[in-house]
Write a protein that binds this DNA or RNA. Structure first.
Lengths: 358, 358
DNA sequence: CTGAAAGCGCTTACAG
DNA sequence: CTGAAAGCGCTTACAG
């Protein structure tokens, strides 16, 4: 007796009835295991035909409950509304679907408790794997998941308990800094005392790696990095604005070049300049560790680093697809340095194209 | 005999064993239905204690399979990387979780086949409901879902087969246009022949509503809308750039005001001006039907309309929570017009705050 | 080549 | 107040 609340779903029993065969046979045909069961081509075909006619779709809940594998893959991510994370989420879903997996992405705003709660919820739906993108405590999450034999993988922020795929922040920062120096030199502008680094927290893995790249590029250009010029004041735009403002006040002059640690920090610097010195927007050389299509119109000289999301996700799914599973290890992907207008316009054009129907 | 592949999960049977009671009793206690079963407070407490100790978490797949309701709610959305849709996705997940539902958002890039495939996939996991945000064919999706008794609801783009929640594009456009006119009048600038509308497709519901608001606001200001000034040239930035360029060439002068139909179109116009007439960026009055925190630094006078995502999602969940279910109907939410720097900075500050840890 | 039976972890009448 | 049994729609040995 069917449950009165049940939805009108075609099951393998309905098909078996119509085909005059058993549910096991129908199940085997419809889930692909029929080859190993040596079911006759003929029977398989008629079953498939009937299934089509009846509009059969397997009930994944039942399949998952029985076979332990749910074919769902979860991902937590700090936010959607951001060039970088937005691209990660979109690409993740694409690749997951290409593998017949149901992607389940969830935005957890870098709130540790929300991250854990979300992971637990995903586990209770028996996801096969969880991707931690930019998670605040990837190792804590890995521990919970391991207790249920669910593997995890870290993206963007590394952990020690699972494989991690991140951008190479050191080389990205090094190259961006070097590009700004090359341009300053070409323009015969002195940058030795006037090259700022703005934004981020020195205790963050990322910021510290970027500062290291910044320093090394300056040192390799034969100069001595000025420690007072490194303003790792946090991420908020208001903080960058304040730090930049204080710096200008103390030196009494505009910097030649500014390395800005994120789009958010860039907003703060731009806001200050738009308010107090619009002209400087066209003379300062900016380097942004982040990419935003609007930012390009703001300043005459804005170089930028764009993290290579495609390469990162390719690497991640390579790890996921690998059998036997990978040990925890750190994979670093080279980000892309966009150092002149032509490259930027090419990037913009491709983004615009994909957003043409936005 | 437990399946060798099964995950180490604590079940109600394990708990029943430890508590010396039956699985039904444990199940009732742990899913809240014990009150109606009049299970003794005492027993309930010890069961809950044991469950806690053993780290029990219900298997939602099993629960869903048996009880038909999966407590999953799906949402398809065109993209993540966008102030508007990003906010929708984040807010949707928040509200869904607050109701104990598992949100499942999926980005379907406005590709009709991908939308359908994704919806079918969600159905095969027995989602309880599907939200179609900005879907290209909401009625087609509604039809498929209705066949399985799964209700849908439309957001952003309306349909006829399910309740729809959208922004009031007409009043938004009207108010934005009126604000620009008021400003032009205050500045003693003539706008009658020099007020452009750029971007969008006249056949789109949205664009046509916005054009209607644009025209009416102009008419109500005592002027005659100039049809040649309505450049509904499509959404791509390159198209706006070309249309704007052609218009300037034909008239030989800069417009007083420009109503731009989206951030993407705004990019095209800004790109042209940044290239050929930077000064005009500070004299033209811009109105953008969309909000972007970077855009504000671009132009001296940029008014903007921001869709009220919070209000839209509140309205949507009100429909979802309502019992009995709503008939298909159209709910229009007033968007917010941001017409001076102070308001804009307040918006920006709140966004910055929420992105402080980005 | 194929079917009957058991079981995944729950919920839901039903019977005490 | 509580337990035994059936069943959600599948898959998976097992037995022919």
């Amino acid at each position: 007796m069917p449950d009165s609340a049940s939805r009108k779903q075609v099951t393998i029993y309905d098909i078996a009835d119509r085909a005059g065969t058993s549910a096991s046979t129908v199940g085997a045909v419809l889930n692909g295991s029929w080859r190993t069961r040596r079911i006759s081509e003929n029977r398989a075909n008629t079953i498939r035909k009937i299934a089509n006619e009846m509009g059969y779709a397997p009930n994944m809940q039942a399949r998952a409950l029985r076979s332990v594998r749910s074919r769902m893959i979860g991902m937590i991510i700090p936010m959607y509304d951001n060039r970088y994370f937005g691209a990660i989420a979109e690409r993740f879903e694409l690749e997951a679907r290409a593998r017949g997996l149901l992607p389940m992405t969830s935005c957890t705003r870098r709130e540790p408790e929300l991250e854990l709660a979300t992971v637990r919820q995903m586990l209770s739906y028996n996801v096969d794997r969880i991707v931690c993108a930019g998670a605040s405590d990837p190792d804590g999450i890995a521990r919970i998941c391991q207790a249920q034999d669910v593997p995890t993988i870290n993206l963007d922020l590394p952990g020690t308990a699972a494989p991690s795929i991140i951008s190479n922040n050191y080389t990205g920062a090094y190259k961006l800094t070097a590009a700004l120096i090359a341009r300053a030199d070409a323009d015969n502008r002195d940058w030795h005392e006037d090259f700022l680094f703005v934004g981020g927290r020195p205790t963050d893995h990322y910021t510290s790696e970027r500062i290291r790249g910044f320093r090394d590029a300056i040192a390799d250009a034969g100069a001595v990095p000025v420690e007072d010029n490194i303003l790792a004041c946090g991420y908020a735009a208001a903080k960058s604005k304040a730090a930049f403002s204080a710096k200008i006040e103390s030196t009494g002059r505009m910097p030649t070049a500014v390395f800005v640690n994120s789009t958010i920090s860039l907003e703060g610097v731009f806001e200050w300049l738009a308010q107090y010195d619009r002209a400087a927007l066209d003379t300062i050389l900016f380097g942004s560790f982040d990419w935003d299509p609007f930012a390009q119109y703001m300043a005459q000289n804005l170089f930028s680093v764009r993290q290579d999301v495609s390469a990162m996700l390719d690497a991640m799914f390579q790890v996921i697809d690998s059998d036997p599973p990978h040990d925890p290890k750190l994979i670093q992907i080279e980000p892309i340095v966009i150092s002149d207008g032509a490259e930027w316009h090419a990037e913009t054009a491709s983004v615009m194209k994909s957003e043409a129907h936005a």
